[in-house]
Every structure is written in structure tokens, then in C-alpha cells.
Design a protein around this nucleic acid. Structure first.
Length: 558
RNA sequence: GCCCUUGUAGUUUUAAUGUUAAAACAGGCCCUUGGUAAGGGUCAGUUACGAGUUAGAUUCUCGUCGAGGGCACCA
């Protein structure tokens, strides 16, 4: 209403309530500017002050269409045209302004209250379809008290402080650059974190009976045509044409490669379930607007695995995978996990009977976990239904990470088979699973969850040894090399700066422990521990320290 | 990909239509040898790219690329 009073000729479309506020889409030739936002906000306050009564009227559908068409509101008219013939519609009026709404509405504009703020403008497609024209959306937030509004704004600020792009820069973990948008340049510290996660997962998978393999990054186009990826995702695949004019694709997924390993040599039913894992780096040409730090990239490493098994083994294998995923999330500090089940999408490969079978099997498995789950209709992969594992972070945000998919299509398309106990060849079932999904993305989530203050066993630098003055450099170096010998990641800081300076510097990069060495420590063969965010000091015998912290240098479940 | 915003040292920012474009921090060198979140001095380093307008462009216009916020997409 405020918008139309200020900018006559602008059409309103829809304006629903969302978490923490609302938005409203408008059709107008000129874009709204930030100053417009201020003007609109002031006008809104004015309308609230006017405290106009609103009232509801029920109209005949066709009368309402006529009414909005006459006013030039073609979008509103279109919405009503989509309401079935014969149904009545409700209109809300205040002053001489009319809106279409299922209701209910507040009884007067004064009831809106003053605790709102327009936050941002953006483009949005009419009816959420990128083939339609783009409208202009104004977002706002609204609360019933000033305090709630302030709390909300603080929450946003808190999330900004945790932004992994900012912390990643401060902690010198990684960077991005124009030469390869959406691909990470990992620095030493970030790569160390990356490797720690991988070796942790290797250990978990080793225990779980997986065999780790590795397959080519570049595979002939024909393989992707066979698997169905070329048809469905060809537009988002990187390709490479060799000097002899052959077309190869840089793998966007690991599964076709993994099936090739399965296919090499005869497999017997005695080999099943066969679990093959791969830390495969995949490339996907994501739309430029989708890129977002580590959370959405064009090149990433999947902690992928494919389990080849019989139909009878599906439920048990799915359960095992689910438990492994939950255990791993717990080790990393995420206990709040939600499951989402997605069934067949419209665009898919395979017969409906096959889909019936895989959906039933996965559903049985998810029920066997006894965990709660929600259902996403039509959101499955093109080759099979899936479970997604969504974890909730320290400030209540949800992140979709792990996935588990039952696939009765690709093994057949790619010619996988095993010899069953009756001597006949059969096509195995393939389960696709990823624990974190993308290592890159998961590291982004970890950074935001912990604000960069990672669990000790994952810290790229777990301790820095600081001599009080250069007289103690030798002792400090000696302590550092002993830490390294027991497998701790440490550094020694011999720079020509005083202690205060060094403590500040390393605290800002979130090193959990600083080991101070001066005369006292040299004489008694000890170190003084200065923990991040704690002024309390603790002096400990060096041997004891090495024992204690090398024991703590691993995931809780190991 | 679409809409809006945006691009100045390694980082965070700021000033500026006309000699060497500025500050802080980080970095190099020197002094300082210090007990728990910034000791002092000094040196070096910058306008995303390409066109155009102009006597002159960091500044204005257009394009390209990137980034930010959304939309759409996400095997």
C-alpha cells in the first residue's frame, strides 16, 4: 500500500509472511533503490499511524477478476483466474486500497505496530519460475516489540561474524580468485584441516569394511551417455576436447567410475556387500549466481562410496550407513540431525516397477532407523530415491550434508553383474552414500558452527610455542619438535615481538593453546599453557603435557 | 543464468578530475629481550580488465570479469 501511494502504477502481486518477517513482490519498470526503501518505510509508519480500519468482503470470483483488471492489477487477476470456477474469493480493504488474501488480516493498519524494518530489495521470478518475468521483491522483518526486532538484528550480526569466508581469511585457511571462480585455493592451514578430516574418515571407513579406490577425473563422453548424466546434466558438465577431437567429460560424479572398478573381474555373491569408497574430486558447472564461498563451489571433493549388494541386503546396509553418518556427525559436534526422504522425480531413468522396489526398500530402511523423517515428493535423484541427512548448527541453522540413495538403475545401465549362488548372472543393487557430501562445504559449515574455534583434534595449528625472550629460543624449538614427534600440529614463534603481541596475534587466528617458555620453564622442564579465551595459566611438566595432548589428538569415537 | 548492489596496497578502510593516490594493521630492516590480547623507529607496496568521452579518468559512459544480497538451479 505504501509502495503504491509513493509509486503509482506499480502493480502488487503476492506478499506472504516468511520466517522472521515478510516480503512483497511488485511489478514496476524502474528498480527500487535503497532510498526508495527508506521512503517506503517512512510511508509505512505513516499508514500505521493513520490506523485505518480494514474489512473483509467475499466477492464472486468473476467480479473480482473484473475488478482487478479494471485497476490494472493483472497479476492479482491472474491469481484469481487460477482459483476454480464457482468459488468465491475474499478481498480485504483499508482506505481505498484493496488486496486479495485468503486471510485473516489485522483489523486495522495501526495493529501492525512500529517494530519493523525493510531489509533488502532483490529480483524474484513471477511464480518462482525462471521462464517468467522478473519482479521486484522487497524484504522486511516485523516483530511485536523493539526488543524482538533488536534480537533479530543481533542474530543476523552474529551469523555475519561467523561467516566462513571472513573467518577463512582471518585464519589463513583458503582463498578464491577470479581465475577460477567457485574453486578453492587451499592454504597450508586449510589443507591441513582438510587432510585431518580425510584421515579421520579413512579410519572410520576402514573399520566399517570399506575399500578405498580412486578413479579417473576425465572419462569418455560415451560413459556419461550410458549412465544418463549426459542427457540430464550435460549442460552443467565441464568437457574437454582432445587434439584428436574426442570429447571427454570431467567427472561430475564418481559413480560411473566406481562401477568400472566393480566391473573389472568376475564378482560372486560371496563378495557382496562390496563397499568401495573414494575421495573423488568432482567438477560441476554451477550457475554463477549460485556460487557461495565454500558452501557452493564448482569443484569439490566428495566423501563418496558405493555399496554393491543384493536386494535382501538393502535394509541392513542402509541402517549401517545411517549409523555411521550419525556417529561421524556426533564426533564433529552435531547431535541434532533430521532425515529427509525423497522419492521419484519427474525426469528419471528406469521402469516404474524398479522404482516401486527401490522406494519400498529405502522406506523400510528409514523406518528401521526409528528416527523421524520428512518426505520430499519428487525430489529424488534421477536414478533412485534418497535420504538426506540435515544437521542443525550452533545457531540453529540447518545444513544438508550426507545422502544415501538406493539405485536399481545405474548398475544395469553400466553393465554391472555378479554370479549368484545358483550360478546365474544378476545385476547388483548399488547404494550411493556420502557422509559430509562435500568436504569443502562441510569445512565451511564447521567453521561457522564453531566460529573458527575448532575442536582440538581438528585444529590446523594446535599449539604455538613462544619463548619469553630469545634466550629461550633453543628450549622452545626443542619443545616444538617434541610436540611434532607425538603427532601434534605445532609451530614455534621466534619473531622479534614481545609476549603480549604474540598472544594477541595468535589468539586472533584462534590457536587453542600457546605454550610459554621462559626461565622458569627451562629450569623445571615444563611449559606454561595459555588457552584461547582464558586468562588462567597452567604450568605442566613437558612429558605429562605430551602424554595428555597426544591422547586428546583424535576424534571422540576413536 | 536473471534482478539489484559493488570492485582502490596482503587485509580493513578512507581521501582525491591535473606532480610521488592516503591511513591503519600485516610484511622487510633497525632498536628493543619482554611473563599473558598491539613497545618504538624506518623502508617498500595499491586504482579488476578493455574500450569510449576529455587537454586530462580512480572518479563519467559502455562492455567484460569477479564479488555481495536475493531469485531460479543443485546428480
Amino acid at each position: 500500500m505504501a509502495v503504491q501511494e509513493l509509486f503509482p502504477g506499480t502493480q502488487v502481486t503476492i506478499g506472504p509472511v516468511i520466517a522472521d518477517g515478510f516480503y512483497y513482490d511488485f511489478a514496476r519498470k524502474e528498480p527500487f533503490t535503497t532510498e526508495d526503501l527508506n521512503k517506503i518505510e517512512n510511508k509505512m509508519k505513516e499508514i500505521v499511524d493513520r490506523d485505518e480500519k480494514t474489512y473483509r468482503e467475499v466477492w464472486k470470483r468473476n467480479d473480482a477478476i473484473e475488478h482487478f483488471k479494471k485497476k490494472g492489477e493483472i497479476y492479482k487477476a491472474e491469481i484469481i483466474e487460477n482459483i476454480p470456477e464457482g468459488e468465491d474469493v475474499s478481498l480485504y480493504f483499508h482506505g481505498d486500497w484493496h488486496d486479495l488474501c485468503r486471510g485473516p488480516h489485522l483489523s486495522s493498519t495501526g495493529k501492525i505496530g512500529k517494530y519493523f524494518k525493510l531489509t533488502k530489495v532483490s529480483g524474484a521470478y513471477w511464480r518462482g519460475d525462471s521462464n517468467n518475468e522478473m519482479l521486484q521483491r522487497i524484504y522486511g522483518t516485523s516483530w511485536s516489540t523493539q526488543k524482538e526486532l533488536d534480537d533479530y538484528l543481533n542474530r543476523i550480526e552474529e551469523a555475519e561474524k561467523r561467516d566462513h569466508r571472513k573467518i577463512g581469511k582471518e585464519m589463513d585457511l583458503f582463498h578464491f580468485r577470479e581465475e577460477s571462480p567457485g574453486s578453492v585455493f587451499w592454504h597450508q592451514k586449510g589443507w591441513s584441516l582438510f587432510q585431518k578430516l580425510i584421515s579421520y574418515m579413512r579410519m572410520k571407513q576402514e573399520i566399517g569394511g570399506y575399500q578405498e579406490i580412486n578413479t579417473p577425473e576425465i572419462l569418455d563422453r560415451s560413459l556419461w551417455e550410458k549412465s544418463g548424466h549426459w542427457e540430464k546434466f550435460g549442460a552443467n558438465m565441464y568437457t574437454s576436447t582432445t587434439p584428436d577431437e574426442k570429447v571427454f567429460a570431467i567427472k561430475p560424479m564418481n559413480c560411473p567410475g566406481c562401477v568400472q572398478v566393480f566391473n573389472q573381474g568376475l564378482k560372486s555373491y560371496r563378495d557382496l556387500p562390496l563397499k568401495m569408497s573414494e575421495f573423488g574430486k568432482v567438477h560441476r558447472y554451477e550457475p554463477s549466481g549460485a556460487l557461495h564461498g565454500l558452501l557452493r563451489v564448482r569443484a569439490f571433493t566428495q566423501d563418496d562410496a558405493h555399496i554393491f549388494c543384493t536386494e535382501e541386503q538393502i535394509t541392513e546396509e542402509c541402517l549401517t550407513v545411517t549409523n555411521l553418518i550419525l556417529e561421524i556427525y556426533k564426533d564433529l559436534g552435531f547431535e541434532d540431525v533430521i532425515l529427509k526422504y525423497s522419492d521419484r522425480p519427474e525426469l528419471r531413468v528406469g521402469d516404474d516397477q524398479v522404482w516401486d522396489k527401490s522406494e519400498a526398500a529405502l522406506l523400510e530402511a528409514i523406518k528401521a532407523t526409528k528416527l523421524e523423517y520428512s518426505i520430499n515428493k519428487g525430489e529424488g535423484a534421477f536414478y533412485g530415491p534418497k535420504i538426506e541427512f540435515v544437521l542443525r548448527d550452533a545457531i540453529g541453522r540447518d545444513w544438508q550434508c550426507g545422502t544415501l540413495q538406493v539405485d536399481l538403475n545405474l548398475p544395469d545401465r553400466l553393465g554391472a553383474s555378479f554370479v549368484d549362488s545358483d550360478g546365474n548372472k544378476k545385476v547388483p543393487v548399488m547404494l550411493h552414500r556420502a557422509l559430509f557430501g562435500s568436504l569443502e562445504r562441510f569445512i565451511g559449515i564447521l567453521i561457522e558452527n564453531y566460529s573458527g574455534k575448532l575442536p582440538f583434534w581438528l585444529c590446523p595449528i594446535q599449539a604455538i610455542v613462544i619463548p619469553i625472550s630469545s634466550d629461550f629460543d633453543d628450549y622452545a624449538k626443542q619443545v616444538n619438535s617434541q610436540l611434532k614427534k607425538v603427532g601434534l600440529s605445532s609451530e614455534v614463534d621466534l619473531k622479534n615481538h614481545n609476549l603480549n603481541y604474540k598472544i594477541r596475534e595468535h589468539s586472533l587466528t584462534k590457536v587453542p593453546m600457546l605454550l610459554i617458555c621462559g626461565k622458569k620453564e627451562v629450569d623445571s622442564n615444563t611449559v606454561t599453557i595459555r588457552r584461547l579465551d582464558s586468562k588462567k595459566q597452567e604450568t605442566m611438566d613437558l612429558k605429562k603435557f605430551l602424554q595428555k595432548y597426544s591422547a586428546l589428538n583424535k576424534a571422540p569415537s576413536i
